[in-house]
């Protein structure tokens, strides 16, 4: 085995990798933000709405959770133009990310909402709050505090899954890795480098989310004590 690792050619194309990293960050950042909001919204609708709403939301959640992200991406990217909706690869990718994360977030937040005891809701109602006010002021914050770790894990998984967007040639980090690979032929070195970048990103994101959790649900507060009581 006379193989020698050569990282210099890879480092020489760091600019390409950094471009990719920037796009990955954008996809993940916007995707997580919008996906989380979608999840909260749908979990709320499911809780407050009627039977039909519940069935629709559940169907969406089940469909997304039981099919691969890649296939969802391909349906959106190739399928939408065929019904007259033109999407750039980036737009298709972002839509797929939001729809995918939205389903997982819905499920997680729903579990959080259901963990809030009925008596809390009755206490709110008996103080003459509307159902919406009860949700907003009594249910939501404790529900989110309880599932924050589960949500955080899902966010990290989603960030890592943005790599799949390279399949439709979105020029994010993995796609740029493939570009650099075909220029340099240092396949293993390229992918080791990029893997380490992802790993660093995942660690940073976890720290960030833990920090955010500590700010939103501070230890020693009522919410801090609820943090992470429901998870998977």
């Amino acid at each position: 085995m006379g193989f020698q690792f050569q990282f210099q050619p890879v480092f020489a194309r760091m600019d390409a990798l950094l471009d990719g990293l920037w796009l990955t960050l954008q996809l993940a950042g916007i995707g997580i933000l919008c996906g989380a909001l979608l999840g909260i919204l749908l979990a709320m609708l499911r809780g407050l709405g009627g039977r039909a709403t519940r069935i629709l939301v559940d169907a969406y959640v089940e469909l997304v959770r039981n099919t691969p992200f890649l296939v969802q991406l391909l349906i959106i990217f190739f399928g939408m133009p065929s019904i007259g909706i033109r999407l750039s690869a980036e737009q298709a990718a972002l839509s797929a990310i939001i729809l995918n994360l939205g389903a997982y977030a819905t499920e997680i937040v729903r579990a959080g909402i259901e963990s809030v005891h009925r008596s809390q809701i009755e206490a709110g109602l008996s103080l003459a709050m509307t159902r919406w006010q009860v949700f907003r002021h009594v249910v939501l914050a404790p529900a989110l505090a309880r599932v924050w770790p589960a949500l955080s894990s899902q966010f990290v998984l989603m960030m890592l899954s943005t790599s799949v967007c390279s399949f439709i040639s979105v020029q994010e980090l993995s796609a740029q890795a493939a570009n650099v690979e075909s220029e340099t032929f240092r396949s293993f070195e390229v992918y080791i480098t990029v893997t380490l970048i992802y790993l660093a990103l995942a660690i940073l994101l976890r720290l960030l989310l833990a920090g955010l959790g500590a700010v939103l649900f501070p230890a020693g507060s009522g919410l801090g004590r609820l943090r992470g009581q429901v998870g998977r």
Binding site: S119, Q120, A123, S126, V138, P142, A145, G222, L223, L226
Partner: peptide, 12 residues
């Protein structure tokens, strides 16, 4: 006003 056996204060 109603007060329950389990106080049901809002923990947050």
């Amino acid at each position: 006003g109603i007060v329950f056996q389990s106080y049901n204060l809002f923990p947050h």
